[in-house]
């Protein structure tokens, strides 16, 4: 997900600098749990709810579209569709009917990843409700990450774990798919198991990672760690800001030159 662009490409606050002043003046009416509030246009749902005087004690997290905690549903005036979104990534529109989902209940199967023997039916074994999928596609339509949820569930049914892992890679576990599913499937838990199985048993072993773990265990970086531990916070901050990042270092040099 890119900064400033909501999951489904909806405009998020302050995308265009020159519109900013005008947006500020404009107010929209939204309905939170049935009650009308006037809020500045251009706010995200989350900010608008807070602007209206509510405080999030659940259903809020990173506020950057990554953690999936602020999954929400809403409708628009005169539109039958039930929309789903991340509250931190979606701008309010005039006439929105809003609420906030604090939590999505979904069973997670118990397994010991070390002991699973992968077979075509492994995912059905842990999540037998998978076979109830009727391909209605509601999960896909509800995904704020625009994943092809239905197709990964279908791949799960036929034991194509690699496909599940790849199609579900950008899942942020918000649970909107699970709450909308008529077959009562907990899609995101299925996908998580698939990714774990894929990582453990199917994807090639990353040699460099194994080597690095060995280096760490042999104490290669112990001295450097000790040095960092003794440093002042200011110095660590400075080091962090000046660290070498691929691409970013060049960009910083260019910005300084300009």
């Amino acid at each position: 997900m890119k900064d400033g662009v909501g999951a489904k490409g909806k405009k998020v606050a302050n995308t265009a600098m020159n519109d900013e002043a005008e947006e500020e003046k404009k107010k929209v009416t939204i309905y939170i749990m049935g009650k009308a509030y006037e809020v500045p246009a251009g706010l995200t749902i989350m900010k608008a709810v807070e602007y209206a005087g509510f405080q999030y004690i659940r259903g809020a997290g990173c506020r950057a579209g990554f953690c999936g905690a602020c999954a929400t549903v809403y409708r628009k005036k005169g539109d039958y569709k039930l929309y789903t979104a991340l509250a931190c990534q979606t701008a309010v529109e005039d006439g929105m009917y809003l609420t906030q989902l604090p939590f999505v209940p979904a069973n997670k199967a118990k397994y010991d990843i070390e002991k699973i023997e992968v077979s075509p039916n492994t995912l059905i074994k842990f999540y037998p409700e998978l076979v109830r999928c009727v391909s209605c596609n509601t999960c896909t339509k509800s995904c704020p990450q625009d994943l092809e949820v239905m197709y990964y569930i279908q791949a799960a049914i036929r034991g194509d774990i690699e496909k599940v892992a790849k199609l579900s890679f950008d899942c942020i576990q918000c649970g909107l798919c699970a709450i909308r599913c008529p077959a009562e499937i907990a899609h995101y838990h299925v996908a998580q198991l698939a990714r774990r199985l894929y990582g453990k048993y199917m994807s090639p072993t990353p040699k460099h990672l194994l080597e690095r773990i060995k280096e760490i265990e042999s104490g290669k970086f112990d001295r450097e760690m000790e040095e960092i531990m003794k440093m002042s916070i200011e110095k660590i901050k400075k080091m962090y800001a000046e660290r070498d990042i691929e691409g970013a270092t060049e960009a910083r040099a260019k910005a300084e030159k300009d």
């Binding site: 077979s119 039916n121 492994t122 059905i124 076979v131």
Partner: peptide, 9 residues
Amino acid sequence: IEELPQIAL
């Protein structure tokens, strides 16, 4: 479940 064909389930 491990053994049954998808079609049956």
